Simulated assay, not measured.
Amino acid sequence: MVNIVKRMRKLRELLWIRCGPGALILPKEVSKISMEFNHKFNGGHLGARRFWRTMLPRIKFRNPSVPITIARHHDPDGPSLLHIYMRSPNGPLNTQTPASPSATPNAQTTLVPDTSAPTHTLNIRSQTESQILEQLVKTLDVQQIEATPEEKEEMAQLEEQRVRSERVRAQVREHFLAQRREEQLLKLARGEKVTV
């Protein structure tokens, strides 16, 4: 079993998903978010990839009922878009409709995907993840979540621990390199062949 302290540190590192840029609550009218971009970062798709990796997990954590889909293509000159689907304020909350009972034996849990056109389409090509987030905030009336003082203190402790760990790693690396150099010098002194 892994050390309990190590496990607690890893769990505390999940704090990044609760607060920070992208921790926002979307309006109730948002029914779906989808992104499309190149699977590599060439051609101005780096910001979209970073937004997908850093901001979308926070958005999904704060808005678990909003489906988020990602479509990645293999064309570096292809589009890099963020689609926002919205329902009308007085429309139904569930935009997906159940399939007909004759089509499937389990009609209560089977849903037909929403095929409506996106309400907002943002071109996110050659933008940084923070610019994409600003564009999303400007487009929608979102509520941004600020970190509590306890969370800020916890993040400061985690950063302190990370710096301390990096310093210890560097010391251990230097120790092992010095030990390896000493062993090689001893082999040279004995006249043995040294492999590099």
Rank of each mutant, 00 (worst) to 15 (best):
M8N: 10
M8T: 11
M8A: 13
M8C: 13
R9Q: 14
K10F: 12
K10G: 09
L11W: 12
L11G: 08
L11K: 11
L11V: 10
R12C: 08
R12V: 07
R12N: 15
R12Q: 15
R12P: 04
R12T: 13
E13F: 09
E13W: 10
L15H: 09
L15G: 04
L15N: 09
L15K: 09
W16G: 13
W16A: 08
I17Q: 06
I17W: 02
I17L: 02
I17S: 07
R18C: 13
R18M: 10
C19V: 15
C19E: 11
C19L: 09
C19P: 03
C19R: 05
G20I: 05
G20T: 05
G20E: 00
G20V: 07
G20H: 06
G20P: 14
P21V: 01
P21T: 06
P21A: 11
P21W: 06
P21R: 11
P21D: 14
G22R: 02
G22P: 09
G22L: 06
A23S: 10
L24R: 14
L24W: 10
L24I: 10
L24P: 03
I25F: 06
L26W: 02
L26V: 08
L26E: 00
P27S: 08
K28C: 10
K28H: 03
K28S: 13
K28V: 09
K28R: 12
K28Q: 11
E29H: 11
E29A: 08
E29W: 08
V30H: 00
V30R: 00
V30F: 07
V30W: 06
V30A: 00
S31D: 08
S31A: 01
S31W: 01
K32R: 12
I33G: 03
I33A: 01
S34Y: 03
S34C: 07
S34M: 04
M35C: 05
M35E: 04
M35P: 05
E36Q: 14
E36P: 00
E36K: 08
E36L: 06
F37M: 04
F37E: 00
F37L: 03
F37W: 01
F37V: 01
F37I: 02
N38Q: 05
N38D: 07
N38L: 05
N38W: 13
N38P: 04
H39R: 11
H39D: 09
H39W: 06
H39Y: 04
K40T: 10
K40D: 15
F41Q: 01
F41M: 06
F41T: 06
F41S: 13
N42P: 02
N42M: 12
N42A: 09
G43W: 05
G43T: 11
G43K: 10
G44R: 01
G44N: 03
G44C: 07
G44A: 11
G44V: 05
G44E: 10
